[in-house]
């Protein structure tokens, strides 16, 4: 049963990826943007424009361009998606797959830590407020959930920098580092293994790097946790309230189950929806962490995508959207499968 469910979900995800790559392809070409003018400048000669157009492959018919992109019936002789490559950037000329592989882990590291911390904080907070409605924890969680649910994380990030870097430094206290990247410029990053700098540092035995990187990640992670813990807490609280008033909890109590056992019954039912929400936020943050990346100059996939978009670097835009969509679909899939194991009603 579960296997059929997984297989079905994988097929749907693949179809969605195909749909996304097609939509992006035609969307960016359908909008009113002229990448050639961006590259050669507005005063370029007709000859230069023609040359640039041809070198970018934009002189071909749209369908042929698509064929080149996909790598089926290609007229350029270059590989496409079917051959496992996303092409080259029009701006830097290097392979998009390599560039994405460099930038993506930075974002993944940031949002993974943030979500884990947010989830671990939200579960006990939401549960305790759900079990004692009206108490202090409950009121705090309620207002918090409402407030932090949608807040300008870029502004809060700046405020944290102002307080924890500028003011703390002024006061002579130990402060957060300047928001200028992942590491102190005097340290060399360890050679990448996973791309997660904290993990690489441990694997390479570079504990100086580990400490510095953790120091640098502190504020960005705090900023994201600050914003995303809101909806998760709210969700856990609502679920808990709902579950505790459910018939099966009342029945479990009337059957004389111990307090512990009843709590486990409740947790099990409240956990699954919170997990789904976490996955959705993960998918959202993959592309939505751009402002935070910018503030702390982390150089993640978000920064890469905005650079590509503003430069009208079509292959890079296509590549990043595709990769981001793929990662989030994988995350949804994993969570759905976990959910199906937790809640047998999902996979029938």
């Amino acid at each position: 049963m579960v296997w059929r469910f997984i297989a079905k979900r994988v097929v749907i995800a693949l179809l969605q990826l195909i749909g996304i790559s097609l939509v992006v392809f035609f969307l960016i070409r359908g909008l009113d943007a002229d990448p050639v003018a961006r590259i050669v400048g507005l005063n370029a000669t007709a000859e230069a424009v023609k040359q640039a157009t041809e070198s970018l492959g934009l002189h071909e018919a749209k369908l042929q361009q698509l064929a080149n992109y996909l790598g089926i019936f290609s007229s350029s002789g270059k590989d496409g998606i079917m051959q496992g490559t996303l092409g080259e950037s029009w701006v830097t000329g290097s392979s998009i797959l390599e560039e994405v592989a460099r930038f993506l882990p930075i974002t993944l590291e940031l949002i993974t830590y943030s979500l884990i911390i947010a989830f671990l904080m939200a579960m006990p907070l939401g549960m305790s407020s759900g079990t004692r409605p009206g108490g202090f924890a409950d009121r705090f969680t309620f207002v918090w959930g409402l407030f932090a649910g949608s807040q300008p994380e870029f502004w809060w990030g700046l405020m944290f920098v102002f307080v924890f870097f500028f003011l703390f430094q002024q006061a002579g206290w130990p402060s957060a580092p300047a928001p200028l990247g992942r590491l102190n410029p005097f340290l060399t990053a360890p050679e990448s293994i996973t791309g997660f700098i904290l993990i690489d540092a441990v694997l390479r035995g570079r504990f100086d790097v580990w400490l510095d990187a953790a120091h640098h990640l502190m504020l960005p992670v705090f900023t994201l946790v600050f914003v995303i813990s809101g909806p998760i807490v709210k969700m856990v609280r609502q679920n808990m309230l709902r579950v505790l008033r459910s018939d099966y909890i009342l029945y479990a109590r009337s059957a004389g189950l111990s307090r512990n056992k009843v709590a486990r019954y409740a947790l099990r039912a409240a956990l699954a929806p919170a997990m789904t929400l976490t996955a959705i936020i993960y998918g959202f943050l993959l592309g939505g962490a751009v402002p935070v990346e910018l503030i702390y100059s982390l150089g993640g996939i978000g920064e890469y995508s905005i650079r590509s978009i503003l430069n009208l670097d079509f292959p890079a835009i296509q590549g990043t959207v595709l990769i981001i969509a793929m990662v989030s679909l994988v995350i949804y899939l994993v969570i759905d499968i976990l959910h199906a194991f937790l809640d047998p009603r999902i996979a029938f």
């Binding site: 459910s246 018939d247 099966y248 009342l250 029945y251 479990a252 109590r253 009337s254 059957a255 004389g256 189950l257 111990s258 307090r259 019954y265 099990r268 039912a269 699954a272 937790l342 809640d343 047998p344 009603r345």
Partner: peptide
């Protein structure tokens, strides 16, 4: 009291499907 519930006093309620835990 917990021991007494379920051991000495049994309970049957309406809406049986909602009174069973949906995920167990």
């Amino acid at each position: 009291a917990r021991q007494m519930r379920g051991r000495d006093i049994g309970m049957i309620v309406q809406n049986p499907r909602y009174s069973l835990h949906p995920m167990m």
